[in-house]
């Protein structure tokens, strides 16, 4: 049963020591809440809802990544640049993380927040993503924080009604615009992608003429943008003139 945790451990080796250091500061609280802390030991423990908390349908993990501009992004450096922030199992645990992270609109540079189901890496190569794709919505500056919050609340609350199809969501902060996207497992499943699109419209309150772009991860791999290896969100870095959303 520990397979997925082991797999995740592989790609955040750089963060691991840091996490442990942080954890030692809170020994007293640690005992009490031990099971809520996925990074608190080398053997990751299952994250479960605490007593009287509201369980989520799935556990989710927050990730953060930042790219140094102009540097080619290889698979390796992508994995080095992405950091796990933490995993939660309940509504209350979600807010603990969310309330103690900056909002995407306040991020600087070429940065992304990823919120994925626990065990799914925010990478095309992950088994859950390799046949998948994503809906992309481009946002003018100033909208990312609000749209991201609405997007992830809808995802956590199972508003998309597409079974197991949702993998995660990403907000990408770029120079002239921000992009939010939601990833699903099966790019070829049109009923699912249509339902995700319609739910996005509803939960983000998008005007009917909003341009939304669906991109399969296969296309993202085969048509990478300049200087972008693209495990993150390739499409966001090219063609920024196209489909820009100003609502």
């Amino acid at each position: 049963m520990n397979n997925k945790f082991d797999a995740l451990k592989d790609d955040d080796s750089g963060d691991h020591d840091q996490n442990e250091e942080n954890n030692t500061q809170k020994d007293s609280e640690k005992e009490k809440n031990d099971r809520e802390k996925p990074q608190s030991s080398t053997k990751r423990k299952a994250v479960v809802p605490g007593p009287a908390e509201h369980p989520l349908q799935y556990n989710y993990t927050f990730w953060y990544s930042r790219r140094t501009p102009g540097r080619p992004t290889s698979s390796q450096s992508y994995e080095q640049n992405i950091k796990q922030i933490g995993t939660f199992a309940s509504v209350e645990q979600f807010w603990r993380f969310y309330s103690h992270m900056v909002r995407p609109g306040d991020l600087t540079g070429h940065s992304d927040f990823h919120l994925f189901k626990e065990g799914i890496k925010p990478m095309w190569e992950d088994d859950a993503n390799k046949n998948g794709g994503k809906w992309i919505i481009r946002l003018r500056k100033g909208l990312a924080s609000r749209c991201w919050e609405n997007l992830i609340l809808a995802m956590l609350g199972e508003q998309f009604m597409v079974g197991e199809e949702i993998c995660g969501a990403v907000v990408s902060v770029r120079f002239q615009e921000d992009i939010i996207s939601i990833w699903n497992k099966t790019a070829s499943d049109q009923a699912t992608t249509a339902r995700i699109r319609d739910t996005l419209r509803r939960v983000l309150n998008l005007p009917p003429n909003t341009i939304m772009e669906y991109k399969t991860h296969t296309d993202s791999i085969n048509l990478p943008g300049p200087g972008d290896r693209g495990s993150l969100t390739t499409v966001e870095d090219r063609g920024t003139q196209r489909g820009q959303l100003y609502f």
Partner: peptide, 29 residues
């Protein structure tokens, strides 16, 4: 397990939600 936005927002003010979690130290994040 389905929650709407309104309900999720209400949970934001619960004591657990306000307890600082163990976060990796990422400057600016």
């Amino acid at each position: 397990i389905i929650y709407d936005r309104k309900f999720l927002m209400e949970c934001r003010n619960s004591p657990v939600a306000k307890t600082p979690p163990d976060l990796p130290d990422i400057p600016g994040v």
